[in-house]
Design a protein around this nucleic acid. Sequence first.
DNA 1: TCTGGGGTCCTAGGACCC
DNA 2: TCTGGGGTCCTAGGACCC
Length: 351
Amino acid sequence: MLHVDLDQFVAAVEVLRRPELAGLPVIVGGRGDPTERAVVSTASYEARAFGVGSGMPLRVAARKVPDAVFLPVDADAYLAASEVVMATLRAQPGAVVQVLGWDEAFVGTQTGDPEAYARQLQAAVLDRTQLHCSVGIGDTLIRAKNATDLGKPAGVFQLTADNWLEVMGARPTRDLWGIGAKISGRLATLGISTVAELAAADPQELAGQFGPKMGPWYSQLGRGEGASVVDDTPWVARGHSRETTFQTDLTDADQVRDAVRGLAAAVLEGVAADGRPVVGLTLKVRYAPFTTKTHAKKMPETSDRGEILARALDLAGAIDPGRPIRLLGLRADMTMPDDARTGHTPTRSGW
DNA sequence: TCTGGGGTCCTAGGACCC
DNA sequence: TCTGGGGTCCTAGGACCC
């Protein structure tokens, strides 16, 4: 199967509608104001050359590239471009398409020449959208996904059981999709720093360290093994959430209650569009400087706006009543009934 | 340097039950 | 006085991805 990833997607879409930005360092994030509290969504390759990357605070990015063009996030524009890309993929011969986000998808197909298929696919996407993409080819989804990075930009790369360890073996575990900073750090303390070392590690021992599911899953990641079937079953959302970061920390309880009310009302917009009732509510509170507390409440299935809002405010009351408040941000999650998960469930461990 | 916004899933531990 | 074993449900928190 193949994994397709659009190159610098968000920045590329912006440059398409403002051709004068081509070749300039473009940084998309927040409301496009580098003095605000927000982070980089996507930086163009020209900006990345200065060390700017996704997740970096805009203020830091501005310090690194004072001359960069800063643009606000325009989700609707990216979604529209994404839909054209995905439609183009689905129009390829024999293609089964599993969308992973705005800018990536797995494509399953039967072909004797995957490399040629990949090139053809790149040409079709470029022709229809003027966007470049990289394509990974693999004998498992994991290998295809990892291969894409090696093909960037605008290239094609193949990873199979034959060359997996040869190509990936010496790389840090952090390079694997699903292994982040924390887990790679914990692995390192166990003497596991490279992909080859992870591949050779005992799954039972990993289970002891990381739990019965995640331990063996990391072992599989190290070997590049797992599912090899692309699943195009329509996505069913597990829940809806909204998150916000305050430009200045909130310090009093009234402000917090107002913020929770507003956030919950915003989530309810997504819930209303979804149509299913709510069964659970979680409030994640980000305190300055950067600690998170969770307050959760299971609730009887309901679609009643007033009741859901009231319960959200109950949770707000649990926010540190005792000590001084310094709130950096808030996130509210609402979950749908389990039995609504009729579609396929593309879990990480399911791979 | 200082912390987005929208998602997903897993784990630990306590409460409660038989 | 000391402390079963198994199960489920719930809350809190952690981690990862794009």
